[in-house]
Structures are given as structure tokens and as C-alpha cells.
Design a protein around this nucleic acid. Structure first.
Lengths: 145, 145
DNA sequence: TTCGGTGCAAAAGATTTGCATATGT
DNA sequence: ACATATGCAAATCTTTTGCACCGAA
């Protein structure tokens, strides 16, 4: 079975906090990890329901919050205002296509370095950052509106 | 009276689209321009009410949408998920303090240039971008949690 | 057996919409 | 006069909470 690392991370987190291991939590984590990046709560709810049709919205929300606390997921708010979750991993940024909605990740050390310099000059301590470029992706550049 | 430029921009936009000039719209625009940057709908509603106590939420929302279309305002979604409006102006980024909530703007040509290179290498056409650094500002770095 | 978890329904918060009335053009 | 704008209340949408019951430890 895939995602052993994440499952173990969750198990450890649950144990450490005297929380319980349930099939719902496992299924939601699995579904989240298998989903393409940047899923909405709605996406997750639908996907989870397909497997185990009596899981409630409530549990999806509560579990995602748990995953965020456990360091497995991150909550994101792109400019359309819809909350999305992505797998927690650092130092990456996004290209967001405003036609087809595709979200591509990129990394850039150059920018990271410059960010640190800017922050320093303001006496600011960076804990995390977000950097998003909105526009048309290669596939959509030619196509009609 | 200040903000003549913006008032004129709005007037032009209204005329061009066969919309009407009303005191509500003017008041909301004034209030928005006088407010410190990055106000929420709630902030605006309260401020506007102080002047003209029978303006409804509805009108604030509708007018802000109008200002966005007229190019005078931009809607923003920071990571707390609350919608904020800011005065439309390009090429700037944000330092967001997660203790006191202060939002500071900065600009950096170096980063702008690098962004363009990255976009190009992906065949991506940038229309706008956002870049936010989250952490503790100079004032909050020393203080207790 | 005990305490946390789950699902439902209801609540809460943010934003939008329907509609009768008011107002700019 | 006519078409759009407004304000209220009701409707939506997303997320949270209360509560009785369920299930992991």
C-alpha cells in the first residue's frame, strides 16, 4: 500500500495526542494523497463519498484540519476565494492558469534569496511565503476566450 | 476634495456603461480610498454606515464589485480566508505579520524579472501575480506570543 | 468501560438574489 | 417616463457546532 510514510506520520500524531485511529481518518488521508494537488473540500467530500458513502462533510472538514495540524496538509486561498488543500511541502510557488484553472508548481532559489534580503531590510522574520503568477498557460494561450 | 482622479474614473466608467451616479457609490468610493489599504467588506460597511446610516450591506458588496470592474479596486484573499479590497496599483507585494496583522507593501524589480523568465520557460503568459511573505514584523519579533 | 469520533441537523458567517420602492437621466 | 439602484429580507454557500449514538483503546 502506498503512502506508508504519511500514514505513519498521522498514526504518530494521533498517538502523541491521545486521539483515535479511525477508518474515516485513514480513508480521507488516502484520498487526499491520491488526489491531484490543490483539492477543495467539495472535491474531497465527493471522492471520499464514492468509497464510503455515509461519511459526512463534518468529518472531512474536521479531518483536514487535523491533517493541517499534523503537518501533512496546507490550506491555501488562491484569488478565486475557494479554500484548497495541498500536500505539505516547502519552497515552491505556483503558476495559475485563469482560463483552464491548471495549477503548476515551480521553485526558484534566486527568488528565495531575494525574499530573505527584502525581509531583512524590513526587520521582518519570514515564516512562510506564497508566490503566485496568474495568467494563461501554454495550452490556453492560443485558444479562444 | 481629494481623490478627484478616482472620482472621475468612476464617473467615466458609469457613463460608458449607462450606469447611474449615486451618492452611495460616491460615498463608498471615498470611504474606500480614505481607508487604510486592505479593508474587509465589514470594515467598509461600518465606515460607510458611520456617515450615512441607512446604507445596506448589499450596496457595499455591489459597489465594490463595480469598483473592481472599473479598475479602481482589487479583491484579495490572504491566507486567513477573509476577502479584502485594496486600491488597484501594480507591481507590489506584501509582508504580512501573523501576530499583529499588519500588511506592508514592497517592490522588487529583481524578482519581477526572474518571474518573467520562469513564466517564459513554462510557456506561460503572466497577467498578474501575488507574492506574500508571512511572518513576524519588526515590532512583533521581540514581544511575547 | 471510557472518552474521543461520527453523522446528522441546526447554526453561523459571508455573500448573493428577489422584489417593491426610490432615484438618476 | 424609463431603466437602473437601493434596501430589506430571504436565499445560498461554506464551514462550524450541538448532541445523541458509535466505536477505538
Amino acid at each position: 500500500m502506498s503512502h506508508e510514510v504519511e500514514l505513519k506520520t498521522l498514526a504518530k500524531y494521533l498517538e502523541k495526542n491521545h486521539l483515535k485511529q479511525t477508518k474515516q481518518r485513514e480513508l480521507i488521508l488516502q484520498t487526499f494523497l491520491e488526489a491531484q494537488r490543490h483539492v477543495t473540500s467539495e472535491d474531497l467530500y465527493q471522492a471520499v463519498r464514492a468509497e464510503h458513502s455515509n461519511i459526512g462533510y463534518t468529518t472531512v472538514y474536521r479531518t483536514m484540519k487535523l491533517l493541517v495540524e499534523a503537518g501533512l496538509a496546507t490550506e491555501r486561498h488562491f484569488d478565486d476565494g475557494i479554500t484548497r488543500y495541498e500536500i505539505e511541502h516547502e519552497h515552491h510557488d505556483h503558476l495559475v492558469c485563469i482560463k483552464c484553472g491548471k495549477i503548476t508548481e515551480f521553485e526558484c532559489e534566486m527568488i528565495e534569496k531575494t525574499q530573505n534580503e527584502i525581509a531583512e531590510s524590513h526587520g521582518f522574520e519570514i515564516l512562510r511565503h506564497r508566490h503566485e503568477l496568474y495568467g494563461h498557460c501554454a495550452d490556453c494561450r492560443g485558444s479562444a476566450n
